[in-house]
Design a protein around this nucleic acid. Structure first.
Length: 492
RNA sequence: GGCCCCAUCGUCUAGUGGCCUAGGACGGAGGCCUCUCACGCCUCAAACAUGGGUUCGAAUCCCGUUGGGGUCACCA
């Protein structure tokens, strides 16, 4: 078996969105497994041949998105990732606009062999034909006007067209969709090289996949119609045809193709919204691939278990609720120190007036511990952790009105006394003391705990009260209860 | 419209001719637990688009229909 070499070849016309990320991921997983068995490689190539729409900012956004997801590349643009350099490689450069001489070379070869030809039909001439075809309700197909003209290289405005066969058919066996056949009469002599030497998609992709030794092309479903054309080009060029795998589209809740409105947002948006990269990866891989009934996978498991046999052929709807659930599962199994490291920048970004960069990560990890069971995103954790790093408390009005009442005064006073006397004994002792106190009054613990919770956190919802008090510290807890009592006293 | 692809609970899916009175997960409903909120646990509702074949037997194979998606550029 030959060493599998795969690639992800985005065009830098926007950020890395969910669909692109999944394509990159499937390629990466396959390469990773192959690499474990032998060598193989995952190549990142930037297809920036649409000069109108390609931007440097998009290149950066895509690279950043890949790095955040943990998808490193064996060959491609050179960048720093996790403190090490990745990218580069024997087929550099990995930007198509820097490879123009290569396309020219292959194009000349095709022309010399009569498999491609120059064409100087203008766009407006063709538009007229196209409109005419439309009026007559026929499909438009370039009629091959320049096929036999043998135009020379210096013909003004000439582009290069690939000579498609008129008869016959091409069949390929797609790894996810099975056999797909296209009649050659459906194909037209398409443009492969512009006048300025910049290739069009099908040609650029084929030439580079040949040059870079790509053995398996896995990409979005929307490319299946391109595949027979590309296969014909491989054959014309005299190179072996790679294997193809077309991944089904990802749809929005309305079953329409994902757009900016639904979830085709940048993967980096998920980072900013408090998602763990592992959770996103886990979600994306399950959208289209399965391994029996298993839902949660580590990256290592995915590398080991991923296979094309279990990639489904049907388009899938992106389900934000399930992603959220997975994120929660991932939060629960991520070590506290890692969570703290990721939550801290979110706290600083959202609460800069209260949080300073010297915030202690060890203390943050302790604060986060009881929140792990109840947060669905890192953002919730960041917001919930703030109160442990500030002096004093801001009472939520509705909570205060309901729980910081005249009747609660004695409860708060006795709670204050208990905390004052027994704080040093720890959370369990405090809880036991509160329980005894409640029982002595014939009440449930909740009757005592709720006013105290509001006093100490300002809200009715928090991690377990005694954990909270311990984390807050004795002085701060007492000060907050005093503040609550003062508020009751003034009848506010 | 031409060509191509797809079709199991609301959603993601298991299923590769008998193991299917169709399994799991998210979400939903109800309950248990409980200091709030969660976590966790238990229970319930919920699907093989449709019509024909093939076969002793079909969610699984074939054909038609319907529905959905993709694509028809000097975009990728």
């Amino acid at each position: 078996m030959t060493l599998p070499r795969v690639r992800f070849a985005p065009s830098p016309t926007g950020y890395l969105h969910i669909g692109g990320a999944r394509t990159a991921l499937f390629n990466w997983l396959f390469a990773r497994r192959a690499r474990a068995e032998g060598k193989g490689a995952f190549v990142l190539r930037i297809e920036d041949t649409d000069r109108e729409r390609s931007t440097e900012a998009s290149v950066q956004a895509i690279l950043d998105g890949m790095r955040w997801m943990g998808l490193d590349w064996d060959e491609g643009p050179e960048v720093q990732m996790d403190g090490r350099k990745i990218g580069g490689g024997p087929h550099a450069p990995y930007f198509q606009t820097q490879r123009l001489s290569t396309y020219d070379r292959y194009s000349e070869k095709l022309i010399a062999e009569g498999k491609a030809y120059r064409c100087n039909c203008t766009k407006s001439e063709l538009d007229i034909l196209r409109e005419q075809a439309q009026r007559e309700k026929r499909g438009f197909k370039y009629p091959g006007i320049c096929r036999e003209k043998k135009l020379s290289k210096d013909t003004s405005g000439a582009i290069v067209r690939f000579r498609m066969p008129d008869e016959g058919a091409t069949t390929f066996n797609d790894l996810v969709k099975g056999a797909i056949t296209t009649q050659h009469k459906e194909l037209q002599d398409e443009v492969i090289l512009r006048n300025d030497g910049v290739p069009l998609y099908n040609f650029g992709a084929v030439v580079d996949d040949v040059e870079m030794g790509i053995t398996l092309v896995a990409r979005g479903d929307d490319h299946v119609v391109n595949t027979p054309r590309q296969i014909l080009m491989y054959q014309a060029l005299g190179f072996p045809v790679p294997t193809f795998a077309h991944l089904p589209m990802i749809l929005g809740a309305d079953k329409q193709r994902l757009s900016k409105r639904h979830g085709a947002v940048s993967v980096l948006q998920y980072r900013d919204d408090g998602y763990l990269p592992g959770a996103l990866v886990n979600y994306l891989v399950r959208l289209g691939w399965s391994h029996g009934d298993q839902e949660i996978f580590t990256l290592e498991e995915l590398v080991e278990k991923f296979d094309w046999d279990h990639v489904g052929a049907t388009a899938g709807v992106f389900n934000p609720e399930k992603l959220l659930w997975l994120n929660q599962q991932w939060i629960k199994k991520t070590p506290l120190n890692e969570l703290a490291a990721q939550v801290k920048p979110l706290m600083i970004a959202r609460h800069s007036h209260k949080i300073t960069p010297d915030l202690d990560l060890n203390r943050l990890a302790l604060v986060l511990a009881p929140m792990v069971e109840r947060a669905k995103t890192l953002l919730e954790m960041a917001d919930g952790a703030v109160t442990f790093f500030e002096r004093g408390v801001t009472f939520d009005e509705a909570a205060a009105k309901k729980h910081l009442t005249a009747e609660a005064k004695t409860i708060l006073e006795s709670a204050r006394a208990l905390i004052d006397a027994r704080f040093a004994e720890g959370g369990h002792a405090l809880e036991a003391a509160f329980r005894d106190a409640a029982a002595a009054q014939g009440l449930g613990l909740g009757k005592l705990a709720q006013p105290v919770r509001v006093a100490v956190t300002g809200t009715t919802v928090s991690p377990p009260l005694f954990d909270t008090i311990v984390l807050l510290g004795r002085e701060e807890s007492l000060a907050r209860i005093d503040a609550a009592l003062a508020r009751i006293g003034t009848g506010a």
